[in-house]
Amino acid sequence: MNGKPPLLSIRGVETWYGKIVALRGVDVDVYKGEIVTMIGANGAGKSTLMMTICGDPKAHAGTITYEGIDITNAPTHEIMHMSIAQSPEGRRIFPRMTVLENLQMGAAVTDMEHFDDDLGRVFELFPILKNRKGQRGGTLSGGEQQMLAIARALMSRPKLLLLDEPSLGLAPMIVKQIFDVIRELNESEGLTVFLVEQNAYHALRLAHRGYVMVNGEITMTGTGAELLAREEVQAAYLEGGRH
């Protein structure tokens, strides 16, 4: 895109769990300012890719570069200090911490200087969290937990936001609200987003570009609209063929 190097570049990445191969040579580029999505069925390797970017587990082969720096073998906590943030699969809210403490943890990589500003900003995006401020994370509803997971990720002021299935198990209304926030962050602040989803329809409509992953391999790529129009995608990931 415009001849600029990608913000995140994944080249030939292979990841293994013991003797099971989960990623078989994945190539993905994410450019600054884009929303890129990866769709795939359950077990395709989407979460593994998200976690491999963050160095847990480490890629057995291939390279991952972020802002031109090779992060393939960097420890997770160092990668997360490079303005990458993830809202992981299952949300992983700290259950015995309050909403506020969860957000403070999100800002752990910062020097806390902008904490109040950033807190105000995520409360504007997700007003419900403000009401739940003192409540323990474990007592929130699924939708609130997802909002908190994204808000927590935003507290580190990331340039690249990794989102793993934010729509999973949520009511359509809430999904729409969350996807609207993602779009708004991208449009108004130029936040780069890499979104992994089984919910292909919404994800492809939101994203500028998309990839399809099957069994740890990329089988298709194109703009969101292109992929939505393809029969194979419709058959496998949209109504009727959803599995």
């Binding site: 963050c54 847990d56 906590h77 993830q86 992981p88 015995r96 911490m97 403490e101 943890m105 999100g106």
Partner: peptide, 24 residues
């Protein structure tokens, strides 16, 4: 303190703590 918070975060979910930049 933030140190105590990181400690509790590691207690509740080490993987997530690392994803938030905590040196576990």
């Amino acid at each position: 303190t933030s140190l105590g918070r990181s400690q509790r975060a590691c207690e509740q979910d080490r993987k997530m703590a690392a994803l938030l930049g905590v040196n576990v």
